[in-house]
């Protein structure tokens, strides 16, 4: 089936057939597909995904990512909303002139840009480590198969 589809569209469509052939269940069906209807992709992968998810390496990858992403997200949201909250509810404080005539409101707004860039840079650095952990998982899967 997959091969026939591949042959039919080979000339015009260069889309790689990585996805399942169809991800749509017939109208009205509830629950899982019967085994004979699983596409090759689904059939092969069900066990493999669970195996990967159970690997210690995978668990520590997810944990490491969370350890960075959750605090970073909370920090940038709090830091960002401090600006409209202070500007809205403490306009007197924000009007204090700091650098010549430049007030706190403008400097705080400007600082948002640099904080955003710094968080992005820190994330890219941390993500290099995540990439390596993911590569290790994939390599282990490959060597396990051979």
């Amino acid at each position: 089936m997959t091969q026939r589809r591949e042959a039919a569209i080979e000339k015009t469509d260069l889309t790689p057939l990585a996805g399942a052939e169809t991800d749509v269940a017939p109208l009205g069906r509830q629950g899982l597909k019967p085994p004979h209807e699983l596409t090759a992709d689904e059939d092969v992968d069900v066990t493999q995904w669970n195996r990967v998810a159970a690997m210690d390496e995978f668990k520590s990858l997810v944990a490491e990512k969370r350890k960075f992403i959750i605090p970073a997200t909370v920090f940038f949201i709090v830091f960002y909303f401090a600006l409209p909250v202070l500007v809205g509810y403490a306009p007197k404080l924000m009007s204090v002139k700091v650098l010549g005539v430049v007030n706190l409101a403008y400097l705080f707004a400007l600082s948002q840009f640099f904080v955003a860039w710094i968080i992005a840079a820190l994330y890219v650095r941390a993500a290099g480590r995540f990439d390596e952990m993911a590569r290790n998982i994939i390599n282990r899967l490959k060597s396990g198969r051979e």
Binding site: Y80, Y106, A109, A120, Y123
Partner: peptide, 16 residues
């Protein structure tokens, strides 16, 4: 200028 700030910081949501 509040528009400017929000529109950049928004990219942290996209990135993270």
């Amino acid at each position: 200028f509040m528009y400017s700030v929000g529109w950049l910081v928004a990219y942290l949501t996209v990135l993270l």
